[in-house]
Design a binder for these strands. Structure first.
Lengths: 149, 149
DNA sequence: TCAATGTTAATGCAATTGCATTAAAAACAG
DNA sequence: CTGTTTTTAATGCAATTGCATTAACATTGA
């Protein structure tokens, strides 16, 4: 016998819907800015930024996956494309031939930098203009609760 | 001469990162539940729900697009697939041969209903369990500000 | 009226993503 | 050790998405 399942509350359903919509809207706006400036997508930026932050500009694919929540196979092919563009380089992982290190190139760093000038401006336009810093802090705290555990 | 562009504040950048991450995480978890129950993706659900709410279970593709923020060409092909599964039906739009009405079928309504039992439970597990109703309300309000104007 | 413009939906083709599997190497268990 | 299991990354192929364009119709304005 199955217990009746309680419906999610109206306020939870509303929050969920708005989360989807806000994300789609803001990502769409920011991607449009990047594209119209001739830059690749946010996914590329995310990888470049993570690498730049990593020790000596290097991370394993696993670490990148974990940082940006991509699927293994998607990241593998994204790195193919980025390598072909000269933005990253695959180097051997010392002491483990299964793994590898992805290293950002100077060209990759330069692209990240140039993209940030457009990306940062877009964040200003589409987020800073809509929320105070205090509200941004509240939003962060709430979203953090959502992903925890 | 170019004015120096102010950097987005740290709290805004953090909120933006968490918005992306929270959305990806929760969508991923919910999609996994749907898939493991043998159901199609959230996109299908979204379309079915919008149609079910529409007058006599009908909306134009334009209206669906607007409601769920899909691209025109993606929706066009999604509707192809859904029609092939017998979930929706394309019917002529009276008085305008360019447009059409998409009508949900009984089978489509039944699928939406069955999906909701899994989807609602997933929302409970992944959202209700993490936020109080009050917090959900605050989150909604903040996300709304983000998409406004 | 009718040419020009705008709107709606579909489609060919390229790029990306998803799924399942594979290959290679490392870690582990007896 | 040696066979088994686990981890890491790549890949063939199908499904989906993105981009650019097209076709069909409606609307507008001279």
């Amino acid at each position: 016998m199955q217990e009746p399942r309680p419906e999610p509350s109206a306020s939870v359903i509303r929050a969920w819907g708005r989360l989807i919509r806000a994300e789609r809207t803001v990502v769409g706006r920011i991607e449009a800015e990047l594209k119209s400036a001739g830059f690749p997508s946010l996914h590329w930026y995310d990888v470049l930024l993570e690498l730049k932050r990593g020790p000596e500009g290097r991370l394993t694919p696993r670490e990148i996956e974990e940082a940006v929540l991509f699927e293994q196979y998607n990241l593998s092919r994204l790195l193919d494309r980025m390598e072909k563009e000269g933005l990253v380089r695959r180097v051997p992982f010392p002491g483990d031939k299964r793994r590898q290190l992805i290293e950002i190139t100077e060209e990759g760093k330069a692209l990240q930098w140039r993209m940030w000038s457009v990306y940062g401006a877009a964040i200003n336009r589409f987020i800073s203009a809509k929320l105070t810093d205090k509200e941004a802090g509240q939003l962060s705290a709430l979203l953090l609760k959502l992903v925890q555990e």
